[in-house]
């Protein structure tokens, strides 16, 4: 444990003193400030004429302003934080020869990889917490509304899910840094995975849906809506392989209490939509959590699988490269 702390301490000081961290932090701070400000102004307009608005504070995170909402921003660019923090974790040390120096000290080999992962997670947590605090602070200033207890809980859960999500990407990049000797290769490989999940899965999903359920809308009107329903389901199931999709689904329901299901409107059956329409109030926190629990569990599982893979490979790998 003592050794773990020592290495984490060193890793953290490395992270904080690196230019890379400063650049990431500056970028993110800038974007979140802009997003928060735009939204703060937009929310005012959106709320004009609404009789009894609820959960206004959460709109800071979900309202898409002029460009995109913070939730979308984190879903899309959050992975980059994880990738940037981890892509050279092991291979840089290997190339500089510091890995064998570190391992020739009386420590267990897994201490090194555990410490590196935990240090990365701490940095991610610090980044996410500060972004959210900045937005809350700006929200207080611009909107002049104090968040309620439930809103704070929802923001907190959102924070935890986001940290797990970015940690998954950290795990991916650490895995690549173990697999590839060159830091450039591991960075590119990690980027490729990010692009695959963010663009290709979406395109692939609709391609698969098109193949399975050909568009027959023009022929029969009724069958058309049936086909739409099927297509939408296929796209959804297929997209579930993307952690980005899991994350978006999980957070959208948590941060937006008016959402009662993770499904899109086309997928909801007729009876279901009637029952939803009848109870037009917001969803209690516990119910929101119940709905997104499977997504959160999947995200945690993915992160653990990723880390376990890195762990096993690292433990078996030869120190010297030939």
């Amino acid at each position: 444990m003592q050794h773990l702390k020592t290495i984490i301490k060193k890793e953290l000081s490395d992270h904080f003193s690196s230019y890379r961290f400063t650049i990431i932090f500056a970028l993110i701070a800038m974007v979140s400030l802009i997003v928060a400000y735009m939204i703060g102004i937009n929310v005012r307009k959106e709320l004009e004429g609404v009789a009894k608005p609820q959960f206004i504070f959460l709109m800071l995170f979900t309202s898409s302003g002029n460009l995109f909402s913070l939730v979308q921003f984190v879903a899309f660019f959050g992975p980059l934080i994880g990738l940037l923090l981890g892509f050279d974790t092991i291979n840089r040390e290997r190339n500089e020869g510091t890995l064998s120096k570190l391992l020739s000290q009386p420590i267990y080999r897994d201490t090194v990889i555990n410490a590196k992962f935990l240090a990365g997670v701490s940095v991610i947590s610090i980044i996410m917490i500060s972004i959210i605090l900045v937005i809350i602070g700006l929200g207080l200033l611009v909107l002049g509304i104090v968040p309620g207890i439930e809103e704070i809980w929802r923001i907190f859960i959102y924070l935890v899910i986001s940290i797990i999500y970015i940690s998954f990407w950290l795990g991916i990049s650490i895995l690549f840094s173990i697999l590839f000797r060159s830091t450039a290769t591991s960075a590119l490989a990690a980027l490729a995975v990010w692009i695959f999940f963010s663009f290709f899965v979406a395109i692939g999903a609709s391609a698969v849906a098109d193949a399975l359920v050909p568009d027959i809308k023009q022929d029969i009107k009724v069958a058309g809506s049936e086909a739409d329903y099927l297509r939408s389901r296929i796209i959804n199931q297929f997209s579930l392989i993307s952690p980005m999709h899991l994350y978006t689904r999980a957070t959208a329901t948590i941060i937006d209490p008016t959402r009662k299901t993770t499904q899109t409107f086309i997928e909801i059956g007729r009876m279901e939509s009637i029952s939803i329409a009848r109870f037009s109030g917001t969803l209690p926190l516990t119910q929101s959590i119940l709905i997104v629990a499977p997504y959160i569990v999947s995200l945690i599982a993915l992160t653990i699988i990723c880390f376990a893979l890195s762990y096993t490979i690292f433990m078996r790998q030869e120190i010297r490269s030939f």
Binding site: D14, S17, E96, G97, T98, S100, K101, S104, P106, I107
Partner: peptide, 20 residues
């Protein structure tokens, strides 16, 4: 290995110190 490593100093070819 851990017990051995606490009693043995290994100075490798390129030293492997953290340069920063």
């Amino acid at each position: 290995a851990v017990k051995i490593k606490s009693k043995v100093a290994y100075l490798q070819e390129n030293m492997g110190f953290y340069s920063d």
